[in-house]
Design a protein around this nucleic acid. Structure first.
Lengths: 196, 196, 196, 196
DNA sequence: GATGAATGAGAATTCATTCAT
DNA sequence: AATGAATGAATTCTCATTCAT
């Protein structure tokens, strides 16, 4: 991997990461070959290595980008007056996205990779999103926007756990729909969070 | 796959599956080679193919056996007088086991395999254990042993989700301990389940 | 790489090493691919890895075998009554062999590999043959078979150096023949070694 | 290879060759990539091909320049009154340099390349330095500055062989030092060359 | 029934060389 | 003249699966 004009570098890296996401969604991370990504990005195989020194580095970058996106979504919670409503909305979105199967692939693959690889594990900080949520809950509680039945920490954990599980269920259990998941989540939320 | 006399078949299959579990725990499913399993089972490589026609079939059989074992654990709930205490105990056990990393490997690997492979997905019925728990909750509620804040279905989902998430956290987040998880779970349970 | 019945293992390893020697002679070590060796040994590519865990291990084994052969040649010196004559003979043989170009390829390639790789360097013990020769000279001197102008150490060094250089010259300089080399060596030897 | 104005050509070629020497010393010729050389020369990768049509041509040019430099060193021998002393000095220098490992890399790499490639072999004329030395010895003998035990040809061969071998030994054998080599060489020289 | 040797289709990665700008 | 992005063939190594004994 060598340097190139910064602009092109970022553009190409981004292009490759987007292609990677496509492939990862389709087949899971570990089943995606560098050649697959190259083909998807319409780039030569060797050229990928100009932008990412190896597969691991590419995955690294991929995770970093992913974390950013999730962070941005949760950031909205800090500036809203209707915390619970927005939370329900965000969660619905996330379940929606995760239950594309494609997203879930990636999500779980990352977990597995993390278990196999300390570096990736560190990067995952196994659930940035949980952190974001916890912080948002805390702030909202301090602002007396909401009343929590349990600590922000447990609440965040429980919520994120619920989301993932529901998403998995949407895919794996044909009797279980996203609508279903949404309704259940509302009830669950009402148990955990009371509005002031 | 060549056939063998029924008795021997079951004995050998069992032996191989036990060896497989060892290997899967150590390195995850996808990183376990057929040779690894053969070595662990002290059986010849070629001989495995007499009992399982290919790796996928072996994994299939593995899942079936796993589901059985979990079912047996939850079955205890149906005959106890101290539902909540026993539940807490079982959950502690499961988190303990899952957070061995080795078990989590398998758990997650299976999920991924399921996402990639309809046959396996069907077999997973993504969380036998959740079904068992739901049934137990329902029966206990009918017997008025417990009072549920939400439906048995949501409660089971929430509990299993919590367990998995906590197990993952035990491994990935060095600041998070099993003790911690146990305490949090108690509070969480008290919110979901009231004793009559 | 896995174990196999000891007999077959040795036979196959030997076969592979022989094939390797062919290839190394033809193209030099670093230009020889594992596929080349497999083809020459009439074995599948993957099968090589059953007998040598990687290319480096194969080269290792190759060197060890080479060292043995040279050692056997020099061992003859210890039991002869006509030291100088036999030495001249052996040297002629070695120059002959080395100047096949093929042998020289290997000889030099090994040196280079040694410079790049500590493990190989250690194995080379950069010139087993020089050690053998030095010991033979020493014994012969003690038995008063020969009279050395310089120490056995320097003498051995000078002789081996001469051999190599002459061999290289035979190949690279078309005006320089093996006959030439033999004659020159006799004169050189007479300067270094006098018979008693 | 595209052409350039003669002046610039020579300047750039020289610059590239100097960079090449740095790289070759560090990692050996075959492990040096064109990109390495470009970086060291602070020139663009593509631009190298304006001045050398390919890697082989570059190595060619490199050898030619190297030969020149060695020639200049030995030329000193022709004008000295203290032949043996100067020779000892020069040899010490060469062993010193060669045993930097870096120089030896190049030296051996070139030999190998020569064996693989007729064009390069011709260029090497496998040991310009030996030729120079032979000529110097001859002249010195004619001027009666020295008395040779053997012919100038054999003497030159023996000396150069000794140098190389000693250099290699300095690197590969930790018990063997440059000092050692120098002392041994003096004794060896005294056997080959007597002053008048 | 059992064995384990053999196969070969990939996978990641490297690097000389070309070519559009 | 100079640049450096792009190419793709080549290399090492892995592993599920087959098959002769």
């Amino acid at each position: 991997m060598k340097k190139a004009s910064t602009d092109l570098i970022t553009r190409q890296q981004s292009r490759i990461l987007t292609a990677a996401k496509q492939c990862f969604s389709r087949n899971g991370i570990s089943r995606t070959t560098m050649r697959d990504i190259a083909a998807e990005a319409e780039i030569s195989l060797g050229n990928i290595y100009r932008y990412f020194s190896n597969k691991k580095a590419l995955i690294h970058a991929f995770i970093e980008r992913d974390n950013q996106e999730i962070g941005e979504a949760f950031a909205l919670l800090d500036n809203t007056k209707h915390f619970k409503t927005l939370l329900e909305h965000i969660v619905k979105e996330i379940i929606n996205e995760l239950s594309t199967k494609s997203e879930l692939y990636i999500h779980l693959d990352l977990l597995i990779l993390g278990l196999h690889d300390k570096d990736i594990l560190a990067l995952l900080e196994l659930d940035k999103s949980e952190q974001f949520l916890k912080n948002s809950l805390q702030k909202a509680q301090e602002k007396s926007q909401i009343v929590l039945s349990l600590s922000p920490e447990i609440t965040a954990l429980a919520i994120m756990a619920f989301i993932e599980k529901a998403a998995i269920k949407c895919i794996s259990d044909s009797n279980y729909s996203k609508k279903n998941a949404g309704k259940q989540f509302k009830k669950f939320i009402n148990l955990l969070i009371g509005s002031s």
